[in-house]
Structure formats: structure tokens, C-alpha cells
């Protein structure tokens, strides 16, 4: 059972995979047709039975097709959240609270310093910069699956209707989003466009590309990065970002704690990020909590493979 298409959650080579149609499509896009022995699609809310065990997928609000997985046996229900966020996102189905006994939560932004404000305000910041520097290109680093499409959709919601340019590595996945009915307006490849013509434009690129020689094709680029990590100045400075945009596809601290309370779960397993603080918080609320020290889950913003690898997808 796979929660969503990010590479730290969806790996090739399994015997049988149960996931939403979108997640299966994304895995196919990334790993090719033979990414698993067999596959089965499941819709949000649909219930499967395996002996005594019932399985149900619920929207996680993280990226297109992302799901929380509820597994119920007798009187006990365990929900694995995968990655999730409670903030609204025009590119995917909104997060749903699933009451349960054990909640396995992510903790990417599991520190109280992480509070992501209104993403629309961050996009306004980007547009104000484009207005102030019309002779410069704006490069927005964003994770190729999910974040990039959300930023584009937010730009469209803000009334920006000029063509938006794409790094080659995000074309396939972005077109997939469009094929699933996500309206993103006119998109163009950045490749082959004359340098001067990129003045005043916005280009989306994988985070790793915004600091490589690929950027030389842009006139005096302003380097932006859309990520929850941009909340902390040292992180933005470390990457040489000029315009940090705090836009996250993970729940922030308030989102994590509100969700944990809302599930009604008495026991919380914390994984995928800053476990310590969240485990501590749970205990102060009288909840049984422990870190699940799983290896291999990380933040996709930080560990994105170089664009070349992704271009194969």
C-alpha cells in the first residue's frame, strides 16, 4: 500500500501495489511500465477486505492522489497518514480527518517555529518582485511533483495569466496534472527561449537546478524557492536564495497538533522528520507517543535527485 507518488514513499520493485490511480500513474511515469508485479487502484472512501482486516484510503491533501491509509481489525483502527497538509491546495483533494485509535503522523515540520502562513501571500510576494524587477527573470525552485503545480495554480488564482516556463524535468509530471483536469494555464518549456525574452517571466525548476549553470540562460535571475524550510533564515541563506517563499505541502506545527487532537487517537507514532518535539508535545497532552525510527523517509525538498535522473521519467 503506497500513500503517494514521492520517491521516498513510492519505490519500484514491489510484488503487488495498492494505491490511488494517480499514485499508480505517477509511479509508472517515473519508473516505467514494469514498476511492480501487479497493481490495483483504489478510490478515496472505497473499502477493501482482507480476512478480518478492512482497508480504506482517505485524502491526505499533500499532492495529487495522496492518501492516508486506514487499517481496521476488530475494534482497532490504525491510520498511516503518509505526508499530509491541512492547508488548502487547488491541485488536490482536501485533507480529511480520519478518527482512529493509532495515528501514524509525519513530522517534517514538527517544531513550533514552523508555521506556514497563507500561501497566496507568498505568491503575492513573488508577483510584487516580478513587477519591481521587470528586466530580470524569476526562477522558482519547487519540487517537481506537487509543489510546482501548486505554485502555478496559485499564480493563476492570483490573476497571473502570462505563460509560465518550465524546466525540462517537470514537463511530464505537470502535463500529467493537466491531463487529470488541474487547470494550469499556458505553460512553455524554458528550453530554447532567447535570454532576452525571459525577462519579466516566471520559470519553475527543480530546486537543484536553480543553483547550477542552467540558470545562465536567464537574464539576472532572482532565485526563489517555494518550501516550508524557507521559514528559517539560515536555511534560505545556506542555499543562496534571494526570495524565499514559505509554501509547504506538509502540515505545519499547528496543523500537526490540531490533526493529532482531531483524530481522537490515544496513541501516536511519529515519523518522517522532527520526531522529538512532536512526541514531547503528545506526552504533555496525555497521549501515548513514540518515534518510529524508520529509515529512508526524508524531505523531498531537500533530497531531490538531480534533474537529469528525473528527466528520464
Amino acid at each position: 500500500m503506497i500513500t503517494h507518488g514521492h520517491s521516498d514513499h513510492a519505490r519500484p520493485g514491489h510484488g503487488a501495489v495498492l494505491a490511488t490511480q494517480e499514485t499508480l500513474d505517477m509511479m509508472r511515469l517515473r519508473y516505467g511500465d514494469n514498476f511492480a508485479g501487479s497493481t490495483q487502484a483504489i478510490a478515496y472512501g472505497e473499502e477493501l477486505r482482507l480476512g478480518d482486516v478492512k482497508i480504506k484510503f482517505h485524502p491526505a491533501g499533500h499532492v495529487l492522489g495522496s492518501a492516508q491509509i486506514a487499517v481496521t481489525c476488530k475494534d482497532t483502527c490504525i491510520v498511516a497518514s503518509g505526508d499530509y497538509k491541512d492547508a488548502s491546495d487547488p491541485t488536490c483533494t482536501p485533507f480529511e480527518v480520519v478518527p482512529c485509535d493509532v495515528f501514524i503522523t509525519e513530522a517534517t515540520f514538527g517544531l513550533p517555529v514552523f508555521r506556514h502562513g497563507n500561501a497566496a501571500d507568498e505568491v503575492k510576494k513573488l508577483l510584487a518582485s516580478v513587477t519591481l524587477f521587470p528586466e530580470r527573470a524569476h526562477l522558482v525552485g519547487a519540487y517537481s511533483l506537487g509543489k510546482a503545480q501548486r505554485v502555478i495554480a496559485l499564480l493563476r488564482e492570483a490573476g497571473y495569466d502570462a505563460p509560465i516556463y518550465l524546466h525540462g524535468a517537470m514537463e511530464a509530471i505537470t502535463h500529467y496534472y493537466q491531463s487529470r483536469g488541474v487547470a494550469l494555464g499556458e505553460l512553455r518549456p524554458a528550453k530554447g527561449v532567447k535570454k532576452a525574452d525571459l525577462a519579466g517571466t516566471i520559470t519553475l525548476a527543480p530546486p537543484s537546478a536553480t543553483s547550477d549553470i542552467w540558470t545562465r540562460r536567464f537574464p539576472d535571475p532572482v532565485t526563489a524557492f517555494a518550501s516550508g524550510w524557507m521559514r528559517v533564515r539560515a536555511r534560505a541563506r545556506q542555499r543562496g536564495i534571494e526570495l524565499p517563499l514559505v509554501i509547504s505541502d506538509h502540515a505545519d506545527w499547528d496543523g500537526l497538533t490540531a490533526t493529532i487532537e482531531a483524530t481522537g487517537a490515544g496513541e501516536i507514532w511519529v515519523t518522517h522528520g522532527q520526531e522529538d518535539a512532536l512526541v514531547h508535545w503528545c506526552k504533555t497532552k496525555g497521549l501515548a507517543a513514540r518515534p518510529l525510527d524508520l529509515v529512508g523517509y526524508g524531505d523531498e525538498d531537500e533530497h531531490e535527485p538531480p534533474p537529469a535522473n528525473e528527466a528520464e521519467a
Binding site: 481496521t72 478518527p99 485509535d101
Partner: peptide, 20 residues
């Protein structure tokens, strides 16, 4: 809705199936 239940192996005060 709960909090008293200890989850796995424990007896929940409500049935998860009906809750969802």
C-alpha cells in the same frame, strides 16, 4: 472522541468502524 483508548491491543471505547 477518545484518548482513553490505548490503540493497538487495547480496547477502544468506541468502535473504529462506526466512527469512520
Amino acid at each position: 472522541s477518545g484518548g482513553e483508548g490505548s490503540g493497538v491491543g487495547g480496547v477502544s471505547a468506541r468502535t473504529a468502524a462506526s466512527a469512520i
